[in-house]
Structure formats: C-alpha cells, structure tokens
Design a protein around this nucleic acid. Structure first.
Length: 169
DNA sequence: CCCTGATTCGC
DNA sequence: GCGAATCAGG
C-alpha cells in the first residue's frame, strides 16, 4: 500500500465517517490492520475501542484514592455518512453483470440512521473520487434492497468475512 | 465462531 | 513507515 496523499485523504474521510477499520480496509482493498496502523500513525482520533490496554488499570493502581476510573465511553460511533444529495447525472450504474454474490451473513452496515428520504431516493452512498474535491461524489446508483449501496458496491462492501483483497475505489 | 480496534515489533 | 501478528474485549 503506497500511502499517497489521496489514499490518506480517503482513509481520513472514511475514518471520519465512522466506518469500522475492516470496512475501510474492504473499501480500500487493504487489511484492517493496515487501516488501523496507518490511522494510528496519522494520529487520527481513536474511536471507542471495545477494549483498552492496561494503561488505565496501571494508573488506577498507583492512584487508589477515589476516582473509580470510569472507562465507559458511550460514543455511538455510527456517524451518518455525509448525506447524499442525488447528483442527477447517474450515468450507467454498471452493476449489470455483477453476480449477487450472496451477502452471506453480512448483516447491517454501520448502523446509520436515515431520518429522511427513506422511501424515495435510495441511492448508493459508496464514495467515489477524492473527498474534499469538487469531483467527489457518492455512487448514487440505485441502492439494492434496503442496503446503503448499489448491487455492485454491496458486493465489495459485504464479503464473507474473510479475505477480499481487491482494489476498488 | 464472528466481530471490534490498539499495540507491538520484525521488516 | 509499514502492517501482520497479537492482544483484548464483545
């Protein structure tokens, strides 16, 4: 993985949207370790981790007085993706020949809420292009069966669980 | 078993 | 700097 400025931008954008490291890895065609490793090196804001190393525990023992060391950090990490205004020009979805590729057990994506436009414009929110640039947009092809992505992108976003090492973008 | 993210450490 | 291995928790 060559971390070009663009790649880093994409990482930052996806990270900021609250996607899981594995999800980001899937989208960028790299491992979650690469994502998390890079994110860490970039000093990206660490999102609530399911665990925490013995740093709090260590300091807690050295400071037995009061302060029960509350480690709970609610932080509902969903983080709704940057909306999707349906940019007209929908060109060819190109999702034609893509085989359904059973989403297996790939359940819910980032539990993002859709407080609005839930019935009408169900468009794919796969990021395309460079975040922060004028040409950046979301796929916006027709989303597939209640999923946040079109058939094509759902196939790469939801994978068996293992492997899946192909470039996308 | 699946998942999650953080840290470590050989490269 | 990179990321797989490992750790740690759900």
């Amino acid at each position: 993985m060559d971390w070009s400025a663009e790649a880093i931008e994409t990482l930052r954008a996806l990270w900021a949207e609250g996607h899981s490291t594995a999800e980001i890895g899937r989208r960028m065609g790299i491992s979650k370790n690469a994502v998390v490793g890079k994110a860490h090196r970039l000093h990206l804001p660490a999102r609530p981790s399911p665990i925490q190393r013995e740093q709090a525990a260590a300091s807690a023992s050295s400071r037995p007085s009061a302060a029960p060391a509350v480690v709970s950090t609610p932080a509902p990490r969903p983080a709704a993706p940057a909306v999707v205004p349906a940019p007209a020009a929908t060109a060819a979805p190109a999702a034609t020949a893509v085989p359904p590729r059973a989403p297996s057990r790939a359940a819910a994506p980032p539990a993002q809420v859709r407080p609005f436009q839930r019935s009408s414009a169900r468009s794919c929110c796969w990021p395309i292009g460079e975040p922060g640039t004028p040409d950046f947009r979301f796929c916006s092809a027709e989303a597939f069966a209640g999923k946040p992505y079109c058939l094509e992108h759902a196939s790469v976003a939801y994978v068996k669980a293992r492997d899946r090492r192909e470039d996308a973008a």
